[in-house]
């Protein structure tokens, strides 16, 4: 089964996945209309700043077993049998934030959501774009990512690719894994800048 695979080393921090995610979870499904909606749709993927201010795309890992599901007071968090996606039933959620305590990745947010009950906040997180996938589309964050930081593929395929890259880098006659020169240059400059921004 395909799933969203995150490659943080590829994230350039443009945050386009956040816009695409919020749009995909709006009523209008169009960016320009979505920003006018009340309540405002919000991203369920969160690009934070890493130690060197590099982008870090943070989204639900759909853990198994899922600590949020075990901690949910209202029994609102469940796993979809067909896709393995950890889902939140917006009508059962009581917005108690017990899942915030449980989630070791900090990916759950609490707000009124266009797709939830009107007038009160609920817990909201990545649903693997189940509505889009049902229509034959791929998750919105993957579709918009132009840097390859988010891919939609079989986990095995992604692992195999990564294993091969590591194996190549460890064989004696191989070149080390190549990071494009411009990317490496900017990265080293940014790290240096960060050290100079205060101490």
């Amino acid at each position: 089964m395909k799933q969203v695979v995150v490659h943080p080393e590829r994230c350039v921090g443009c945050m386009q996945c956040m816009l695409a995610c919020a749009t995909a979870h709006s009523r209008s499904l169009m960016l320009f209309a979505a920003v006018q909606e009340t309540p405002q749709p919000k991203a369920r993927i969160h690009v934070g700043a890493g130690c060197f201010n590099e982008g870090f795309p943070n989204r639900c890992r759909h853990c198994d077993p899922a600590p949020c599901q075990m901690a949910c007071l209202a029994g609102a968090i469940y796993r979809s049998d067909s896709t393995g996606t950890v889902m939140i039933n917006p009508d059962r959620c009581i917005n108690c934030a017990s899942c915030a305590m449980a989630c070791p990745y900090g990916v759950i947010r609490f707000h009124e959501d266009p797709l939830g009950p009107a007038g009160h906040a609920i817990a909201v997180k990545c649903d693997n774009c189940s509505a889009r996938v049902a229509k034959g589309q791929i998750p919105a964050c993957v579709e918009i990512c132009k840097a390859g930081a988010l891919t939609y593929e079989e986990m095995d395929t992604a692992m195999r690719r990564k294993n091969r890259a590591v194996a190549r880098s460890m064989s004696t006659d191989a070149d080390p894994p190549v990071m494009p020169a411009g990317v490496a240059l900017l990265k080293s400059i940014k790290q240096s800048e960060l050290q100079l921004s205060g101490s």
Binding site: G48, A49, G50, C51, Y105
Partner: peptide, 10 residues
């Protein structure tokens, strides 16, 4: 305020 999981990866 900006603390996030990504900062723990180094």
């Amino acid at each position: 305020p900006g603390f996030n999981f990504g900062q723990l990866l180094y």
